[in-house]
């Protein structure tokens, strides 16, 4: 920071920041660049929703109201029952599959079986769905469609109203299914073997002969 370049108000701001900014540590340069956004400008883009419900807009909806909207706007990709068409994401079911491992089985990670927070469902539909027309839904439509997706997973009733006050309180089945990052999780440090190492170099897999049909949903999906 160059104090000589700062205007007096910048110096005052800088000193205040020095007291108030334990994390950034130093006061910032007062560039005098940019403008203060209006509350309306911030609100127009600030649509994120947190697990504690902060960010949920006023509104309401039921699965019954969401069903026709879902069938019109969502089912073409996600399927009438959330089963997923082609490689599009599966939204429903998959309970008790998270321990499944190839080749005996495979995990089916859906809103019901995997997602820890209902808030994420609202947040994502509101900002990014439907896929070809993101940000086109009203809050009531988002509540209704989200309710229908939760209904497909037997998490809410068909006529149960979801709204700003109760949406974030919905208990998601896999709420406790997540753990912190504990990597490194493989042997670390020490001098690795350089000579006559005891490894079995038998080839047990080859890429070239594989003939997997992608539509069978046996491959991990990128979406």
């Amino acid at each position: 920071m160059s104090v000589s370049n700062m205007r007096p108000e910048g110096l005052v701001f800088g000193l205040a920041a020095l007291v108030l900014l334990p994390f950034s540590g130093v006061a910032g340069e007062d560039f005098g660049l940019g403008v203060t956004p209006t509350p309306e400008q911030i609100a127009g883009w600030d649509k994120d929703v947190r697990p504690d419900g902060v960010g949920l807009p006023p509104g309401r909806g039921t699965a019954a109201e969401g069903e026709p909207l879902y069938l019109e706007k969502c089912a073409v990709c996600h399927g009438e029952f959330g089963e997923g068409i082609d490689r599009w994401p599966v939204l429903a079911g998959g309970f008790d599959t998270l321990k499944h491992q190839w080749p005996e089985g495979r995990p089916e990670k859906t809103v019901g079986s995997y997602w820890p927070y209902s808030s994420t469902l609202f947040d994502y539909i509101w900002r990014a769905m439907p896929f070809p027309e993101p940000k086109s839904l009203t809050p009531d439509e988002v509540y209704a469609i989200a309710a229908y997706v939760l209904y497909l997973n037997d998490i809410v009733g068909y006529d149960e109203e979801l709204n700003q006050d109760n949406f974030a309180k919905i208990a998601m089945p896999n709420r406790d299914g997540f753990v912190p990052d504990t990597r490194p999780d493989v042997p670390v440090g020490g001098e690795p073997c350089m000579k006559d190492c005891p490894v079995d170099t038998t080839i047990i897999g080859r890429a070239a002969p594989l003939q997997v049909t992608p539509e069978d949903k046996k491959e991990p999906a990128v979406d």
């Binding site: 998270l98 995990p107 990670k109 997602w115 994502y124 997540f178 912190p180």
Partner: peptide, 23 residues
Amino acid sequence: WYTREETSKYTDLLPDGKARLFT
């Protein structure tokens, strides 16, 4: 915020059915 890309995606599912978050 626990957004879609840090919960439903970009989490690492382990054999015990638990998934690592914020990896």
